[in-house]
């Protein structure tokens, strides 16, 4: 793996006595889409603010683009905060150009980029509109564009999908995927699993300020115990002896359910059936959704915290 774009090492943040984030360590490789998942109050926004050095961690260290503080690499990072707002009296293009120029883009180029971005994302007709006349979806798009107008290497989006209709969510997904295609790194936080599942290369799940998972979507799915449902003319009890099988249940005439061991591949059951010559009529491996994984992880975490 190339040098990570971002690396956190045992980062904790206390507000008074309240631990918002505890002992958080993870790293984000370059060029990936990194999902930041967790229920409300899990510490997502606090972590992102620490990454941007808007807040300073109580303990631990953060390395971003090779520097200990995001303030040193401000111009190479784009940020969309959770609570969104714009200058009400400014025109759409000038807001984007202003934020780009604050990130070091020269005036004329900032203006040109702003118009290009608006045009490319279907807001060309609204470039001259004052932002308080835009719909919520449009102004959120303008804010996202403002956060990427300086073409940052690392884009951090806090809850970018919240409040958008499915159509605009789709547009935003494309935008994020496009950033990745151009070699940029995107970190976004969400509590909507479908986005994470579709887009993320890697995930971090936070609950109560602690990390409870870091890895790929496939790895996340493996956390859940996979089940296989089988229909067969004959008896399938022979499968019980397989090392990947934890239990075999006879549900009814010709209907079976196999509970696999954690991390086991359902394909192992199918290939065993062929080897053993078992007469299958149907094979259905249920793929656990990220949502199931999330509930499993977060629920477990909550359970251990509340005895």
């Amino acid at each position: 793996m190339a040098t990570p774009v971002l690396e956190l090492e045992r980062v904790s943040k206390y507000f008074g006595d309240f631990p918002a984030v505890q002992e958080l360590s993870f790293s984000v490789p370059a060029g990936c889409i990194f999902g930041f998942l967790g229920p409300n109050g899990a510490g997502k926004t606090t972590s992102l603010r620490m990454i941007l050095d808007i807040l300073r961690p109580t303990t631990g260290s953060i390395t971003i683009l090779g520097h200990p503080s995001a303030l040193k690499v401000r111009d190479r990072v784009g940020y969309l905060p959770e609570e969104k707002g714009l200058y009400k009296k400014m025109k759409a293009w000038s807001v984007i150009a202003y934020f780009a120029s604050l990130k070091g883009v020269p005036g004329a180029k900032a203006k040109r980029t702003a118009h290009e971005l608006l045009e490319r994302h279907g807001l060309g007709d609204f470039a001259e509109a004052r932002t308080d006349t835009l719909s919520k979806g449009m102004s959120q798009k303008v804010q996202v564009l403002a956060s990427i107008a300086h073409d940052p290497e690392l884009v951090i989006l806090d809850e970018p999908f919240s409040g958008l209709d499915p159509l605009n969510q789709g547009v935003l997904e494309e935008l994020v995927l496009d950033l990745k295609a151009r070699g940029r790194t995107v970190i976004f936080s969400t509590h909507v699993m479908q986005h994470a599942e579709r887009m993320c290369d890697r995930l971090l799940v936070l609950a109560r300020g602690r990390k409870c998972f870091e890895g790929s979507v496939v790895e996340a799915r493996r956390l859940l115990i996979p089940k296989v449902r089988l229909s067969a003319v004959g008896d399938l009890r022979a499968l019980e002896a397989l090392p990947t099988v934890a239990a075999l249940n006879h549900l009814g005439p010709g209907e079976w359910e196999i509970i696999l061991r954690a991390g086991a591949d359902p394909q192992s059951v199918l290939s065993a059936c062929f080897t053993l010559g078992l007469p299958l009529t149907s094979f259905h491996a249920t793929q656990p959704s990220l949502h199931d994984v999330f509930v499993h992880l977060v629920g477990a975490e909550v359970a251990t915290e509340d005895p």
Binding site: R74, P81, K88, F99, Q143, S147
Partner: peptide, 17 residues
């Protein structure tokens, strides 16, 4: 106050001191 109530403050502070 506009920047505080609009929460533009975060974007600004991720760009300038």
């Amino acid at each position: 106050i506009e920047e505080k109530s609009n929460r533009l403050i975060e974007v600004l502070l991720s760009s300038i001191t």
